[in-house]
């Protein structure tokens, strides 16, 4: 009795959650399908009338979204695999080195997690400028050197530490180098972590707005988030156009995130 009641109460609650949390994303979609330049309606029209994809066409035309998408794809294609490699290699190396150095690196990683990105913008900007790397895609790929986020390095470290020590010992007996052990034995044991880190670092890279905002000025190098911003400043009242752009930027991130989340909450 009690179980069944709790179950239906839970379902009711879940339904409520859907009703509250689904609208923003649904509205994003609905907004993008309005016809640009229509006068405002007195009542909200969730299902646009007329349904129009004109916003998408205009977004591409005005915002240079094709070019921006290409830039975003280039950045993600380099940064995501690089992030996974750097984070997993570092996470594995942490299990192999003396404790004192490991603690120092873990401590520095935690500091790295605590410092807000905005706090580092000024010196990073000065540094990239000095290296003549502003107005290139390099500063957008650079975060891959910290594995997109030190959090992912720590996640890999914990995952590798959880692999039974005997497996590593068996590799030592077979005379594998640490790099071989990492690639041939350790990585296959932590596939769920690898796919989660790949997905999350993709979302992080794909959505990165602050870095391109500060480091990139050349329109030809705009990534999708930056192109969206300039699209919105172009005509802030023509919402179907920039919402169409927002949908385009959102879809890949959401698909990847949903896949990762499904895997995580198994």
């Amino acid at each position: 009795m009690r179980g069944r009641f709790a179950g239906s109460a839970r379902s009711l609650g879940a339904l409520f959650v859907v009703v509250v949390f689904a609208p923003p994303l649904l509205l994003l979609l609905s907004g993008s399908l309005h016809r640009p330049g229509e006068p405002p309606k007195p009542t909200p029209d969730v299902i646009p009338d007329p349904l129009s994809t004109e916003g998408y066409a205009l977004a591409f035309e005005w915002g240079g979204l094709l070019r921006a998408t290409l830039n975003s794809v280039v950045v993600a294609a380099i940064a995501v695999p690089l992030s996974v490699l750097v984070a997993s290699a570092a996470g594995f190396a942490l299990t192999q080195i003396p404790r004192r150095i490991r603690n120092a690196v873990v401590g520095a990683s935690v500091i790295g997690l605590m410092v807000p990105a905005t706090a580092l913008l000024v010196p990073k900007f000065a540094m990239f400028r000095w290296l003549n790397l502003t107005d290139t895609l390099a500063p957008l790929i650079a975060p891959a050197l910290v594995g997109a986020s030190p959090l992912y390095v720590l996640a890999f470290y914990l995952a590798f530490r959880a692999v039974p020590q005997d497996l590593y010992d068996a590799c030592l007996i077979e005379d594998l180098s640490p790099a071989q052990t990492w690639w041939r034995v350790a990585m296959p044991q932590v596939r769920p972590v690898t796919s989660a880190v790949a997905a999350l670092s993709f979302v992080l890279t794909w959505s990165n707005f602050l870095d391109p905002l500060v480091f990139v000025y050349d329109r030809d190098l705009f990534t999708l988030p930056l192109a969206l911003r300039s699209l919105a400043t172009l005509d802030p009242t023509n919402f179907p156009v920039f919402l169409a752009g927002a949908v385009l930027a959102t879809v890949p991130a959401i698909i990847v995130y949903a896949l990762a989340q499904r895997r995580f909450l198994k």
Partner: peptide, 15 residues
């Protein structure tokens, strides 16, 4: 190092 000793080992967990 272990790899150069030409030993092989059966672990308790089998590894």
């Amino acid at each position: 190092r272990p790899g150069l000793r030409n030993v092989s080992m059966v672990f308790q967990s089998y590894a």
